[in-house]
Design a protein around this nucleic acid. Structure first.
Length: 809
DNA sequence: ACATTATAAC
């Protein structure tokens, strides 16, 4: 910069710069890494009629090499020779260094040969360059060997020593150190620094310390690198006291370097000495150094490891008096860190500290905070934060519109649509992540998701076939096959072709709606749109045909699939077996079972259950039990329904003890959680009842209640886990240790959907006494009814209770 | 008068 000013002064005064002035400038820019400016000056030079010399070109080549553009440097080298300029050792050395940094050693040795042919004898500098190049790629021994005839200088030894240290080659270090001592060369600071590092590498801490202390006698002053090497060397082996001692020596020295601070801070963090690390950071700030962001991040991590989110908060508070730029990015980092670790609330506290100081959060950090708040954070903070974001960045900033639209979509489709429309007209189209649809569906607002896509399709340009298929699947599952089909053609119009997976969902959806004919028609049309039916396609249709009793059609389809080379899986066989069993054709079912076993298709839970059901239907409990034990030995147990069938069958015959032991076996193979997960899909209410009776008989009323609570959460999904939590809190208050297991099961459930904030909120709501009392009332009534086995009455009371609690919410 | 080589921390 200074050089540039002098140059301008020269031009202003009408003094024409000569080759040397230009060369000095070019060299400066080359070293600074701005080759663009260098080329500009070269052109200007030529225009002014000032001829560049070999030194000018060397400087330019250096610039190219520094930028990693070795090819350009090499081309220039050729051009220079073509111009008839005699190249010298400097130029070769520069080029060889470039080739080394590129790792092109063929070129390096070729250039050395060329030099020799031209009669240019390489000096120790050139050799050092090559040695350094080899050391940097881990070929230190080779470098040592190849150039052992060359009389090295202090740089040669330093380079080799450093190479061996990096490679961890202890023998190499010792050998080189001895050679260096024998050479009688005078040590300089760099050599000392490298030797100290080597001493630490081999574990010779005393030697490292001795050399460090002997430096003044050698007329050498420790520099920042000396201090860093010493501090880091001690820190790496956990000798923090000695590191601190050196750091104190650095403090009273004339050396000033932020790197020394960074070294000791990182060492303190690794030792978990967070408080002292913060002290050092404060001192660093007072000295006017810039806080390295990597270092502040390290402290955030260390503070978190020691004290959790509070530790991070504490760190932020303690650095309040730092320069605002540094403090701003520190807060940004802390906020992002806390969000990522799941502590949005603490992150918002940090944000308020920032705000008080008039600092502004980065866009992406705002976005992160809002995402965490919207998807599972404190709801009441979402509004204020959307406001702050909007005020700081405005709606013109796409990311603001995006998060705002996401929030609206999750809350009110119509407002969201109006917003999206306005944005499109007045600002720009807001693009939304397809994943938001999953969240809307999760809230049970399937048709809202559907509406959003149709009416704001520009905002969903990123949707792929999987995203569409997800929604098609959900629509089918909830009984909207027509909307699903409509979505398929909508997707196609938007350039996303639905695949066989998508259509499988539609086919299944149509079947579930009882539209078997339409499903078959869709199946027939698949070929026309170039889709090949998969095993799932066939399995779906065959299963539904079987369920409708259309066995002949099912068999035709089965033959069709075999003909097309599509292998039937266990699900296909299950459909037939289930059908035979339901109609008492056990022989047919058993024949098919042995068939599929011959084809090495493995029976699964459902297969076994279907057959057990068949036996039970016929009242053949011996058959059922024998079949059960036979498959138990093969490690295939029935599903819940299979167990329940056996229990019922045995109960009907008055074989209570056997029923009990089967139930016990069921509880051994299946966990309560697994049962709960199956309630809404596979188990009908009667079976739940049998299960509850069993639990009550065993005296596990709490467990029975947990199951009931789970049912409540399925019946009233909008309440999510709130009710359940309130109840378990109440249980906890009323029954203490007896119910703790129940509470933990429920807690596990609410953790599963990560609704910890919901749980906390519940707790607050639950503090209002009236609710507890009302629950206690229900609870005592229920438990006495359950213990008497009056399940029907208990069920009725339970329903009353659930609806009354629902009213309270 | 101008050009080439070695060392520290996250």
């Amino acid at each position: 910069m200074e050089a540039l000013r002098k140059y301008r002064e020269m031009v202003e005064r009408g003094i024409n710069p000569d080759t040397v002035s230009y060369t000095v400038l070019i060299d400066g820019f080359s070293k600074e890494g701005s080759v663009g400016k260098v080329v500009g000056f070269l052109k200007k030079m030529l225009k002014d009629g000032v001829m560049p010399n070999v030194i000018t070109y060397t400087a330019i080549m250096l610039g190219f090499c520094k930028e990693g553009k070795f090819e350009k440097a090499f081309r220039l080298f050729k051009e220079v020779q073509d111009m008839g300029i005699e190249v010298d050792e400097f130029m070769y050395a520069t080029l060889i260094d470039g080739a080394c940094r590129k790792g092109d050693f063929d070129c390096v040795f070729h250039l050395l040969d060329e030099m020799e042919k031209k009669g240019i004898k390489p000096s120790v500098v050139t050799y050092n360059i090559v040695i350094n190049g080899l050391c940097k790629v881990g070929r230190t021994s080779e470098a040592d060997n190849v150039f052992k005839e060359v009389a090295g200088d202090i740089i040669t030894y330093s380079t080799l020593l450093y190479g061996y240290t990096e490679e961890g080659n202890i023998k190499g270090i010792i050998k080189t150190k001895e050679k260096l001592e024998k050479s009688g060369l005078c040590m300089d600071v760099v050599a000392c620094n490298i030797l100290i590092k080597a001493f630490f590498m081999v574990g010779a801490f005393e030697d490292a310390r001795a050399l460090y202390q002997a430096m003044p006698e050698m007329d050498l002053n420790a520099d920042s690198i000396t201090y860093c090497t010493m501090i880091d060397g001690y820190c790496k082996v956990g000798r923090i006291e000695e590191a601190l001692e050196v750091f104190d020596e650095y403090r009273v020295s004339l050396v000033s370097s932020v790197a020394c601070y960074n070294c000791i801070i990182s060492g303190l963090c690794k030792q978990g000495m967070v408080d002292m690390a913060i002290q050092v950071i404060i001192e660093l700030g007072e000295k006017g150094f810039i806080l390295d962001m990597g270092i502040s991040m390290m402290l955030i991590r260390a503070a978190f490891a020691q004290m959790g989110a509070v530790g991070v908060m504490n760190f932020v508070y303690k650095l309040e008096n730092f320069g605002s730029d540094t403090y701003n990015s520190l807060c940004d980092d802390a906020i992002r860190f806390l969000c990522k670790r799941g502590f949005v609330e603490t992150a918002t506290e940090v944000y308020f500290v920032m705000r008080r100081k008039g600092l502004i959060l980065m866009k992406s950090s705002y976005n992160l905070v809002l995402e965490k708040l919207i998807y599972g954070g404190t709801t009441s903070l979402v509004g204020p934060f959307l406001n702050f974001f909007l005020k700081d960045y405005g709606l013109v900033e796409p990311i603001v519109g995006k998060i705002l639209a996401q929030y609206l979509c999750l809350n009110n489709t119509d407002i969201a649509l109006r917003f999206l429309k306005k944005m499109k007209e007045q600002v720009s189209t807001v693009s939304l992540p397809p994943s938001i649809l999953k969240n809307i569906v999760k809230e049970g607002r399937l048709l809202d998701a559907y509406k959003l896509i149709l009416e704001a399709s520009e905002s969903f340009a990123d949707m792929d076939v999987v995203d569409y298929s997800f929604l098609v699947h959900a629509l089918c599952k909830e009984g909207y096959p027509n909307q699903a089909l409509n979505l398929c053609s909508f997707a196609k119009n938007n350039g996303i072709t639905p695949n066989i997976v998508t259509y499988n969902s539609v086919i299944n959806g149509l079947c579930c709606q009882g539209c078997l004919v339409e499903a078959l028609r869709l199946f027939d049309s698949l070929e026309r749109i170039g889709l090949v039916p998969s095993t799932v396609t066939y399995a779906t249709l065959i299963d539904n045909l079987c369920k409708q009793g259309l066995l002949l059609e099912a068999k035709n389809l089965f033959n069709g699939m075999m003909y097309k080379g599509c292998k039937p899986n266990i699900r296909v066989y299950n459909s037939f077996i289930d059908n035979y069993c339901k109609f008492g054709q056990m022989d047919e079912a058993l024949k098919l079972l042995s068939d599929l076993e011959n084809k090495s298709v493995k029976p699964e839970e459902f297969t076994v259950s279907a057959l057990i059901y068949g036996y039970c239907m016929k009242g053949d409990m011996e058959g059922a039990l024998t079949f059960y034990s036979e498959f138990k030995m093969k490690n295939v147990s029935p599903d819940f329904l299979g167990f329940i069938h056996m229990v019922r069958g045995l109960c009907a015959k008055g074989r209570m003890e056997e029923a009990r032991s089967i139930l016990r076996e069921m509880l051994q193979t299946k966990s309560v959680v697994e049962l709960i997960n199956n309630i809404d899909t596979k188990i009908e209410s009667e079976s739940i009842e049998s299960f509850l009776v069993f639990l009550c008989d065993q005296g596990s009323i709490q467990e029975a209640l947990v199951v009931l609570n789970e049912i409540a959460s399925i019946l009233f999904p909008s309440q999510k886990w709130f009710t359940v939590h309130q109840e378990s809190q109440a249980l906890n208050n009323g029954l203490k240790s007896e119910t703790l297991s129940a509470v933990s099961t429920v807690s596990a459930g609410s953790n599963k959907i990560s609704d910890s904030d919901g749980a906390a909120e519940c707790y607050d709501i639950g503090k209002e006494e009236s609710q507890f009392r009302s629950f206690d009332f229900y609870y005592s009534l229920l438990s006495s009814l359950c213990s008497k086995g009056e399940l029907h009455k208990a069920n009725k009371i339970m329903n009353d209770m659930l609806s009354s609690l629902q009213g309270d919410m």
